[in-house]
Write a protein that binds this DNA or RNA. Structure first.
Length: 613
RNA sequence: GCUGAUAUAGCUCAGCUGGCUAGAGCACCUGAUUCGUAAUCAGGAGGUCGCGGGUUCGAGUCCCGCUAUCAGCUCCA
C-alpha cells in the first residue's frame, strides 16, 4: 500500500525476524542473529512495528521533558500507528501535540542511542516504587526478568523491540489526544492517551495523511448535511435521526429493493407494535439482560417498554394460530423500528443512534432445517454485499460459558453454521465462546471506506425464546414439537447501512439508489417545459429527477447540479427540443454525450434493473 | 457513562487580553440579465452569540450547571 522507500535507509538493519516470527532488535542481538532474517529500515510490517514502538518511546521522552511529573503506563503499536497512555497534572489538548512533536524532533536530531538492559523483576519493583502505573505494568508481567530501555535520561520498562537510536525516527505525526481507561476498565482511572503514526519514509507518511483526509471527505455526517440526507436536532434529543426528503428517497429505494428480494425468497411481511407490556420483556429475558438499555414507561398503572428488538412481535404472530410442520420453515420479516438507550458518548452520526430500523427476520424451523435455512440466509447476505461492492468477513461465535440448552443441540447448530459456510465456499473466523447465551451465531462484518469494520448482518440460532414463549408446531406424527428460531438481519439497520453506503460511494450513489437520479438544466426559460415533460416521464418510470431552471446563469446551475453528485445532469436547449433528444453529463463515465430522449429512458430503465437483488 | 475539547446567521467561519448599533463568504428574498456545459450584476433581509444561572459599571468574550456535537475509552445493529 505504501511506496517502498528507495533511499539508503534500507541498508540500515534495525532488527531480526526469528523463524517463529518473533522480532528481536539490535540491542538484544548486538552480534547479529544466526538463522534470522534481517529487518531493514523500511515499511515492512516488522520494520514498522519496531519504528512505531520506538516513536512511542520517543514521544514519551518528549512528554517527560515537557511535563516532568508525567508517569507512563503502556505504549503499544496498534493497527493505525501507536499510542502512549500516561498521567500528568497538566491538561494536554490538541494544540499541545505540536509542542510535543517539536520536542521529539529535537531529540531526533541528537541521535540519542537507545540502550537495553535487563534486571530482576524485584529490582524493577524497587526501582519504580514511586510510580504506581509502572507497578501496575509490572504486576502483569509473568517473567522474573524485565528489560528496560534507556535513551538519554529517559528510561522505560519495555519488552522492545526498538531501533538503535532516535535519529531513525523522522517520519511521524501525532494525530490525536484522548482519554483512555487504565487497563481498559470502565471503572478505573482515566489516563491521557496520545495517538501517532510513523513510517520509514516521508512519502508513505504523506500518503497516510492523505488517506485520513479522504476519510474526512467521505464522512457520512459531512455528506449527509451537504446532500441534505438526514439531520439531528438538539432539542428533539441525541441519537434520534430525522430523514430529510432526499435521505428518505434514498432510504425508500433501499427498502423497496430489499422488500422485493425478501418476498422472492419466501419471507412474509409482518408488523408488531412499538410498545409492549413489561411482562413480555420479563418473559423474554430482555428486562433482566437488556433493561438498562430500554425505554420504559407507565400507562394506567402498568409498566410498558418500547421494543429494543422485534422478536416478540413475530413470536406472538406465530403463536396466534396453530402451526404444522408443513408450515416450516416460516419466515417473517419486518422493517422493525427499535429503541435502545445507548450511552451518550457512543452516538456517532447514523452509525450509532438510539432509534433505528432493522431489516429483521425470524425464521421458525425444525432442527433439521437449520442448515439449509442458514445456507439460504448466507447466500442472501452475499448477494446483497456483492450488489453494493462491499468487502466483508464472517465469524462464527460458539457456545459461551454461560449458556442454555444441551451440548448436542449446540453442536448440531454450530456444525450447521459451519457446514453452511463451507458448502458456500465462504471463509470465516471462529470466535470461541462468543455466541449469545441462547445459541451460536454468524456475524457479518463490512469493511468501510476507511477500513473500519462494522457489524451489520447477523444470523443467530435460538433455542431459548421458543422455550420461554412455549412456541410449538405439530409434527407428522401428531406430536407437539419445539421449533428453532433463527434471528437474522442482512443490512443490520438502515441507518448504519446507509452511513456505510454513503462513505463507501463518497456520496455518489449508484443510479438505483440515488435520491435524485437526474437533474435537468434547461438552457433558457423556454426550455423548461420540455424538461418538465421528460421529468414526468421519468417519475412514471420510478426515476426521481429535478429541474434546475431558476434565474441563475447556466454555468452556475450546472455547477449546483454537479455538486449534488447525481448520476446524470441533462442539458436541454433549442437543439434538444427540436430533435427530442438530451445532452447528458454522465458522472460515472465522466463523459458528455447526446442521445434521443427515448434511448436515454431505455438506458435509465436498464440501470434501474441493476438494483435488483 | 468517563476523559478532553467545541458551540457566533440555514452552512463555513472572523470577532485581540470583557468596552458604544456582532462581521464575511455561500445559501435565501427582490430587480436586472435568458445564457450551450462547474460561481452574472445590483440591492435587501436574516443573529436575545446553544440554554439557564453567576461575577462585573459593562459579558459573544470570565466562572458554574445543563443540552448537543467532536476525538477517544468502555459498549453495540
Amino acid at each position: 500500500m505504501y511506496s517502498q522507500q528507495r533511499i539508503r535507509v534500507s541498508e540500515t538493519i534495525i532488527g531480526y525476524k526469528k523463524s517463529d516470527g518473533e522480532i528481536v532488535d539490535t540491542q538484544s542481538a548486538p552480534q547479529g542473529c544466526e538463522g534470522c532474517e534481517p529487518i531493514p529500515l523500511g515499511n515492512s510490517p516488522e520494520a514498522l512495528e519496531i519504528l512505531r514502538h520506538s516513536t512511542a518511546h520517543l514521544m514519551a521522552q518528549a512528554i517527560r521533558e515537557l511535563y516532568p511529573d508525567a508517569q507512563f503506563f503502556v505504549g503499544p503499536v496498534v493497527d493505525e500507528g501507536f499510542y502512549y497512555d500516561f498521567r500528568t497534572s497538566e491538561k494536554i489538548g490538541e494544540e499541545d501535540l505540536k509542542k510535543i512533536e517539536k520536542k521529539m524532533k529535537e531529540l531526533i536530531k541528537k541521535k540519542i542511542p537507545i540502550e537495553k538492559y535487563t534486571i530482576e523483576k524485584s529490582e524493577a519493583v524497587e526501582k519504580f516504587r514511586n510510580d504506581d502505573l509502572k507497578q501496575a505494568v509490572l504486576r502483569n508481567i509473568p517473567s522474573e526478568e524485565v528489560s528496560i530501555y534507556r535513551q538519554g535520561d529517559f528510561e522505560d520498562l519495555c519488552r522492545g523491540p526498538h531501533v538503535p537510536n532516535t535519529g531513525l525516527l523522522h517520519n511521524f505525526k501525532l494525530t490525536r489526544v484522548a482519554g483512555a481507561y487504565l487497563g481498559g476498565d470502565e471503572n478505573a482511572e482515566m489516563l491521557t492517551r496520545v495517538y501517532g503514526i510513523a513510517f520509514a519514509d516521508k512519502e508513505s507518511l504523506k500518503e497516510h495523511l492523505k488517506m485520513l483526509e479522504e476519510a474526512k471527505r467521505r464522512d457520512h455526517r459531512k455528506l449527509g448535511a451537504e446532500l441534505e440526507l438526514f439531520m439531528f436536532d438538539e432539542e428533539a434529543g441525541a441519537g434520534l435521526p430525522f430523514w430529510m426528503p432526499k435521505g428518505a428517497r434514498l432510504r425508500s429505494k433501499l427498502e423497496q429493493i430489499l422488500w422485493c428480494s425478501h418476498r422472492q425468497r419466501g419471507y412474509e411481511p409482518v408488523r408488531g407494535p412499538e410498545i409492549l407490556k413489561a411482562d413480555m420483556w420479563r418473559t423474554s429475558g430482555h428486562y433482566a439482560c437488556y433493561g438498562e438499555n430500554m425505554y420504559l414507561t407507565e400507562i394506567d398503572g402498568q409498566e410498558y417498554g418500547l421494543k429494543p428488538m422485534n422478536c416478540i412481535g413475530h413470536i406472538l404472530i406465530y403463536k396466534h394460530s396453530g402451526k404444522s410442520y408443513r408450515d416450516l420453515p416460516l419466515k417473517y420479516f419486518e422493517y422493525g423500528v427499535v429503541h435502545r438507550h445507548e450511552k451518550s458518548g457512543v452516538l456517532h452520526g447514523l452509525l450509532r443512534v438510539r432509534e433505528f430500523t432493522q431489516d429483521d427476520a425470524h425464521i421458525f424451523c425444525t432442527p433439521e432445517q437449520i442448515k439449509p435455512v442458514v445456507l439460504e440466509v448466507v447466500e442472501f447476505v452475499d448477494a446483497v454485499m456483492k450488489k453494493f461492492g462491499f468487502e466483508y468477513s464472517m465469524e462464527i461465535s460458539t457456545k459461551p460459558e454461560k449458556a442454555i440448552g444441551d451440548d448436542a443441540v449446540w453442536e448440531t447448530a454450530t456444525q450447521a453454521l459451519k457446514e453452511a459456510l463451507d458448502e458456500n465456499g465462504l471463509e470465516y473466523g471462529i470466535d470461541e465462546g462468543g455466541g449469545a447465551f441462547y445459541g451460536p451465531k454468524i456475524d457479518v462484518k463490512i469493511t468501510d471506506a476507511i477500513g473500519r469494520k462494522w457489524q451489520c448482518g447477523t444470523v443467530q440460532v435460538d433455542f431459548n425464546l421458543p422455550e420461554r414463549f412455549d412456541v410449538e408446531y405439530v409434527d407428522e406424527d401428531n406430536s407437539r414439537k419445539r421449533p428453532v428460531m433463527i434471528h437474522r438481519a442482512i443490512l443490520g439497520s438502515f441507518e448504519r447501512f446507509i452511513a456505510i453506503l454513503t462513505e463507501h460511494y463518497a456520496g455518489e450513489f449508484p443510479f438505483f439508489l440515488a435520491p435524485t437520479q437526474v437533474i435537468f438544466v434547461p438552457i433558457a426559460s423556454e426550455h423548461s417545459a420540455y424538461a418538465r415533460e421528460l421529468s414526468e416521464r421519468m417519475l412514471d418510470g420510478g426515476i426521481d429527477s429535478e429541474i434546475y431552471d431558476r434565474n441563475d446563469s447556466l454555468n452556475k446551475r450546472i455547477r449546483q447540479a454537479e455538486k449534488q453528485k447525481v448520476p446524470y445532469v441533462v442539458i436541454v436547449g433549442d437543439e434538444e427540443v427540436k430533435s427530442q433528444s438530451v445532452a447528458v453529463r454522465d458522472r460515472r463515465k465522466k463523459e458528455q454525450y447526446n442521445l434521443s430522449a427515448d434511448d436515454f429512458m431505455l438506458q435509465l430503465k436498464k440501470q434501474l434493473e441493476e438494483g435488483k437483488i
